[in-house]
Design a protein around this nucleic acid. Sequence first.
DNA 1: TTTACACTTGCAAATCATTTGCAAAGATGT
DNA 2: ACATCTTTGCAAATGATTTGCAAGTGTAAA
Lengths: 139, 139
Amino acid sequence: MEKCKADNLLKTTNTVRTEARETILHAVLDSERPLSANELHLMVKDRGIDLATVYRAMKLFTEKGLVRPVHADSGLTFYEKSCEHNPPHAHFICESCGGIECLKPYGFDESAFFIKLGQQKEVSSVELILKGRCSSCAS
Amino acid sequence: MEKCKADNLLKTTNTVRTEARETILHAVLDSERPLSANELHLMVKDRGIDLATVYRAMKLFTEKGLVRPVHADSGLTFYEKSCEHNPPHAHFICESCGGIECLKPYGFDESAFFIKLGQQKEVSSVELILKGRCSSCAS
DNA sequence: TTTACACTTGCAAATCATTTGCAAAGATGT
DNA sequence: ACATCTTTGCAAATGATTTGCAAGTGTAAA
């Protein structure tokens, strides 16, 4: 059932549908928090899907606008679904456990930046990351 | 002359002064833009300073609050001086050439985030990065 | 200012996340 | 089904950053 969604998204974005891609996209759509390539791999490896395929899918889905990468300082990249139901937002990353949380909405006038820089630069995306200690690690 | 500044900062932060550290810190203080470990290494290798030492210095200086790391999506980390004359600010990273530029001031009410999250999480830092094409790459 | 001890450094090897080459397996248009 | 272009698994390569270790340097005390 949820599988249909992934299936449709692949169709509507002119992406060749393969078992691997649908499985991986499904995992991303199903998660309420951003996932690392490794976490995704853990979820799909039992279906014989390789880590390299996960990375290739993330690259493709990012280009197609189906997912958004979130870059943590640790060097890890997390991926989250990109759709009307999940617009761009800030993230909180715990420096203690490395966990990531979504914080919506941005809370600042994003458009001001675009206007301010519009004449000099083409801004394609904004990444706002707050760092600190999450509630569970603080205790 | 500028060297004194680096020298003093090391003293006031209780950091053991070594030729390598003073040389590296001096290079960071002298730059108006964030530098990668590799760029820093290019600037100091002629004095026999190793890349590993640059990384170790960046880690130490970050802990001492002398520099701030800026994490680009590319996986590269840039370092910039952290002082009253160079408060936290947003950065622009060109997706085409990988170049980084400083954008001051933030332009959004940073404190709102702290207040909003203060009761649940301890926020220690904010990183705001805009991505796109810089003026030179756009042409 | 010399000594003793701890800290720092260069070098090389190790990590970690991510990417890539390649031959085999799968998808698409005819 | 056929021929062709794409995708995948696997293993090896990359690139940034880190670490082990023995030798060199800084520091506090004698």
